[in-house]
Amino acid sequence: MNLVWKTMTRQLHFIHLAYGVRIHAFVLMSNHFHLIARAPEGNLSEAMQFFMSETGKDLRDWSDRINRTYGSRFHRSLISSPLYYLHAYKYVYRNPIEAGICKSVEDYEFSSLKGLLGEGPIEVPIFDDGNWENWESRTQTLNWLNTQPDRGSWEQVQKALKKEVFKLARQNNRPSVLENDAL
């Protein structure tokens, strides 16, 4: 994982500089990664194609593999509102907890959150999204990230992230309860 992390963070720096991609959150899991980013120049597909191609080459070289590294091209979901962004943000950083790897978001080693919190080097070029300014304190933000949402809400966000445009499903012809709540 350390080698994969170094490869990924190096290429994230490159796409940040070469493509102008603004990275807001990154979490590396053992078999996938989560990235929240935006591309003001409208070139996210090109940047991600480069990122996955270069990280794939490096990982194949280091592991003496000849097959593809990734099962498919990347999947993206357009996040169109600040509330939806908060749902996705919490989903990304809580993923290691939900997988049973750690007990709190700040404990996971392969996350851009460590650098953002000042608990390690900033290895991922994080673009300030103002997300941490909306909270009274760092403790409050971490409490929010570490609070487990109910299973139904978590599954709604998970399904919304699989769509081309992040959209919470309506329930009984009414908006989701998550439309007014950031989990």
Rank of each mutant, 00 (worst) to 15 (best):
H75L: 08
S80I: 11
D129G: 15
S45R: 07
V4K: 14
N131K: 06
Y108K: 05
N172L: 14
P121G: 02
Y93E: 02
V177W: 04
L116T: 09
A47S: 02
T55S: 13
T7Q: 06
L117E: 04
V157C: 01
D58M: 08
S77A: 14
Y19P: 00
A99W: 05
N180A: 05
L142Y: 04
V21I: 14
M8S: 11
Y19F: 15
A169M: 11
H13L: 06
H24V: 05
F110Q: 02
K114G: 00
T7C: 11
N173D: 14
G115D: 05
S111M: 04
D129R: 04
Y85M: 03
D61A: 07
L183W: 06
N43K: 08
K114F: 04
G100T: 11
Q156T: 02
N134D: 05
M8L: 13
I126W: 12
D128E: 08
M8W: 10
Y19D: 04
V92I: 15
D107V: 04
T147M: 09
R94D: 01
E179K: 08
N180M: 04
F127H: 10
H13E: 08
R151G: 01
T139D: 15
A25Q: 14
P40M: 02
H13S: 06
G56V: 07
L113Y: 09
L44D: 02
W62K: 08
W132M: 11
D64S: 08
N172I: 10
L78P: 01
E119S: 05
R170N: 12
S45G: 02
N67M: 12
N2W: 12
S80F: 01
I79W: 00
H13R: 06
R38L: 14
